[in-house]
């Protein structure tokens, strides 16, 4: 990987939420929602963040686009350290990044027309000066997400559109400033099954055409297959496994990844049996977690070491990292 094509680098990124317990108590605890994530994303590539609810996917996504300020580690964007950007620099970073949220119905101010919603980013960044040019941009963005004829949609209010249409508008809004990086946080999980594929296909096409870096957050490993080059498997604030999507799907190494794969509805009866490998349970509380492998309490293959020490990331195969003591010996290779 040369620095040229590199879009985003995360180095040991942490986002801990501070919580105070009790009235007037000065004792502070932390919810370690993102606890040491390292990853590199190239220009025009998509990475899937996969994990159970509460594993810190959203927090990581929001930290990357600096809706949250990290507590530790670094975010390098286009060779520029954006970890603690302020004011105008942060505003620049906002233009370079976009966000598509999970809930399309809540993503728009109900008192704005679609036109106004799309115009807002342009007004804020003042990238286009004249009104006509702004309108042109807005219409072009609507065309880009296939909401045509654009005049039919531009002057409607959000409540007049369906979930799928709103999500298209949300995508239009996210790309209208021509960002380089897009975070899509479960963009289809609240939509009707019939439109999910359409929206995902639309996102994928846009990503390829605009050479966008995309961080695609999902519960569902199955959709990552045709959506992303890379996959990160998250559990309790840690990245448990990262590799090419194809590689992870074909050759899952971490017991958690395997559990996730079996939890994914698959017609293949062979996979159904594997479901039993993971005992039921909840992800651990992230408030001051113990220094062990965070998956160990639920892991069917855990041994002594797993309960005592947190494993580092081992490169089990070329470009395939696993945070699991089972793969310690492959380190020697």
């Amino acid at each position: 990987m040369n620095s040229e094509g590199r879009l985003l680098e995360l180095e040991d990124l942490r986002k801990w939420f501070e919580i105070r317990r009790g009235f007037l108590s000065s004792k502070v605890s932390y919810v370690k929602a993102v606890d040491g994530v390292t990853f590199t994303l190239d220009e025009g590539m998509a990475v899937s963040l996969v994990g159970e609810s509460g594993s810190g996917k959203t927090t990581l996504g929001k930290t990357i686009i600096r809706l949250y300020e990290p507590n530790g580690g670094r975010i390098i964007f286009q060779d520029r350290d954006v970890t603690h950007l302020k004011a105008n620099d942060l505003k620049w970073y906002r233009r370079m990044t976009g966000l598509v949220q999970q809930d399309p119905f809540g993503a728009f101010a109900s008192h704005f027309t679609i036109f106004r919603s799309l115009e807002e980013p342009l007004l804020i960044h003042n990238t286009v000066k004249s009104k006509e040019e702004r309108a042109e941009k807005v219409f072009k963005a609507l065309e880009e997400v296939r909401l045509t004829p654009v005049e039919d949609f531009a002057y409607k209010y959000p409540h007049m559109l369906s979930g799928g249409q709103l999500q298209r508008v949300a995508i239009a809004r996210a790309i209208i400033l021509e960002p380089r990086l897009l975070v899509a946080d479960e963009p289809v999980s609240m939509l009707d099954a019939s439109v999910r594929i359409e929206i995902l296909t639309l996102l994928r096409r846009l990503q390829e055409r605009l050479r966008l870096g995309v961080i695609y957050i999902t519960h569902d490993l199955a959709t990552t297959r045709f959506f992303s080059e890379w996959a990160l498997i998250m559990y309790a604030g840690h990245v448990m496994e990262k590799a090419f999507t194809q590689e992870i799907l074909r050759n899952p190494l971490h017991p958690y990844t395997r559990a996730l794969l079996t939890a994914t509805p698959e017609p293949n009866p062979e996979n159904r049996n594997r479901f039993k490998q993971v005992p039921p349970g909840e992800p651990p509380a992230l408030i001051d977690p113990p220094k062990s492998c965070r998956f160990s309490p639920r892991c069917p293959r855990a041994f002594d070491k797993c309960f005592k020490e947190e494993p580092p990331e081992f490169e089990a195969a070329s470009g395939h990292w696993v945070k699991c003591w089972l793969y310690e010996r492959s380190e020697g290779k």
Partner: peptide, 26 residues
């Protein structure tokens, strides 16, 4: 806490703008 506020923050809306155009009208 509504998503549209977060969305606006993500595209760079300032606190002032959020209060004036997003919160007060509501």
């Amino acid at each position: 806490s509504y998503p549209y506020i977060e969305a606006a923050q993500a595209y760079g809306a300032s606190n002032m703008r959020l209060i004036l155009f997003y919160v007060i009208p509501k």
